[in-house]
Simulated assay, not measured.
Amino acid sequence: MTGLQQMILIGEISLQSQIAKKAAERLLATHEVFDNVETWCSIQSILVAAGNVSKILWPSQKYKLRGQKLRKLLGVEDNNPLASRKFRNHFEHYDERIEEWFESNSQGAYIDLSMNPSLKESSFPVYPL
């Protein structure tokens, strides 16, 4: 990897980090005056930006060495939370989850645009990440 490649990729990591930060600020701003669309817009922006950084630092097998070099250069540990894309993929592949749910379940309750951490997972069906 050349110095120019490193500079470009680090620049993209910086940009995506700024995007995630701005989205987090917007998310906090909606706390007092709840706006459902703005809340989910901010969450989605954070997930996409974090996913983009994740793909740069933990790329496909073909570019694995590049990812290792960048992580070492930036001091990013292999166990960094961005290494796992399960949570982001849970949202990104929403359509597939819906299809799979209805293939195996003929009935059930549907709740969208809602997260309630006070509910225990055992009290409702949870689609695995």
Rank of each mutant, 00 (worst) to 15 (best):
M1P: 02
L4A: 15
I8L: 13
L9F: 10
L9G: 00
L9Y: 04
I10H: 03
I10F: 05
G11N: 10
G11Q: 06
I13N: 01
I13Y: 02
S14K: 09
L15D: 11
L15G: 04
L15T: 07
S17P: 00
S17V: 03
Q18Y: 10
I19M: 10
I19D: 04
A20F: 04
K21P: 00
K22D: 10
A24T: 13
A24Q: 03
L27W: 10
L28R: 12
A29V: 01
T30H: 06
T30R: 05
E32L: 09
F34M: 08
D35M: 05
N36L: 14
E38G: 14
E38D: 09
E38S: 11
E38C: 09
E38L: 15
T39K: 09
C41K: 01
S42E: 04
S42C: 09
I43G: 06
S45T: 05
S45M: 09
I46T: 02
L47Y: 08
V48E: 15
V48R: 03
V48T: 10
A49L: 07
A50T: 14
N52Q: 15
V53G: 00
V53F: 01
V53K: 00
S54I: 01
S54T: 01
K55F: 04
L57E: 00
L57F: 02
P59H: 02
P59K: 03
S60D: 14
S60R: 09
Y63E: 14
K64M: 08
K64F: 11
L65R: 13
L65C: 01
R66V: 10
R66A: 13
R66I: 12
G67V: 02
R71C: 09
R71S: 01
R71P: 00
L74G: 08
L74K: 04
G75K: 09
V76K: 00
V76A: 03
V76D: 02
N79M: 07
N79F: 07
N79K: 12
N80Q: 07
N80R: 01
N80S: 15
N80H: 15
N80C: 14
P81K: 07
L82K: 00
L82H: 03
K86N: 11
K86M: 08
F87H: 12
F87G: 05
F87T: 11
F91S: 07
F91R: 02
E92M: 14
E92D: 09
Y94M: 14
Y94I: 10
D95W: 06
E96N: 09
E96K: 11
R97A: 11
I98G: 06
E100H: 10
F102S: 02
F102N: 06
E103N: 13
S104L: 08
S106D: 12
Q107F: 09
A109S: 12
A109H: 06
A109R: 14
Y110N: 03
Y110V: 14
I111H: 11
I111W: 06
D112G: 08
D112S: 13
S114C: 10
M115S: 10
N116H: 12
S118Q: 12
L119Y: 13
K120N: 12
E121V: 11
S122R: 11
S122A: 12
S123K: 08
V126Q: 10
V126M: 11
V126A: 07
V126K: 13
L129N: 12
L129Q: 11
L129E: 14
